[in-house]
Simulated scan of single mutants.
Amino acid sequence: MTLDDAKVQAKALRLALQTQGTVIGHAQALELIARQHGAKDWNTLHARLALGSAPTALALGDRVQGRYLGQPFLGQIIALSGPASHRHIEIRFDQPVDVVRFESFSNLRRQIRATINEDGLSHRHTSDGMAQLVVRKEKG
Rank of each mutant, 00 (worst) to 15 (best):
M1G: 14
A6E: 01
K7Y: 01
V8M: 08
V8H: 10
Q9F: 06
A10V: 01
K11T: 15
K11F: 07
A12I: 03
L13G: 03
L13C: 04
R14H: 01
L15H: 11
L15E: 15
L15F: 08
A16S: 11
A16N: 10
L17N: 05
L17C: 05
G21Y: 07
G25L: 06
G25T: 13
H26P: 09
A27G: 09
A27I: 02
L30R: 12
L30P: 07
L30V: 05
E31C: 01
I33Y: 00
A34N: 08
Q36A: 12
G38I: 01
A39W: 05
K40S: 09
K40R: 11
D41Q: 01
D41H: 09
N43Q: 12
N43T: 06
N43H: 04
T44E: 13
L45R: 07
H46N: 11
A47L: 10
A47K: 14
L51R: 14
L51T: 15
L51C: 10
A54L: 13
A54Y: 07
T56E: 15
T56L: 13
L58P: 07
L58W: 12
L58R: 09
L58H: 11
L60H: 15
L60E: 11
G61R: 09
R63T: 10
V64R: 05
V64G: 08
Q65G: 10
G66E: 01
G66D: 02
R67Q: 14
R67M: 11
Y68T: 03
Y68Q: 03
Y68C: 04
Q71H: 08
Q71S: 09
L74C: 09
L74R: 14
Q76S: 10
I77N: 06
I77Q: 03
I78H: 04
I78P: 00
I78N: 10
A79G: 04
G82Q: 04
A84I: 09
S85D: 14
E90S: 14
E90Q: 14
R92S: 11
F93P: 07
F93L: 08
D94L: 07
Q95T: 13
V97Y: 01
D98T: 05
D98E: 03
E103F: 07
F105G: 03
N107I: 11
R109D: 00
Q111I: 11
Q111Y: 00
R113N: 04
A114F: 02
T115G: 03
I116N: 06
D119W: 12
G120N: 03
L121Y: 12
H123N: 05
H123C: 01
R124Y: 00
R124V: 12
T126H: 01
S127Q: 12
D128K: 11
D128E: 13
A131L: 02
A131M: 06
Q132F: 03
L133K: 08
V135Q: 02
E138F: 13
E138M: 10
K139L: 14
G140Q: 11
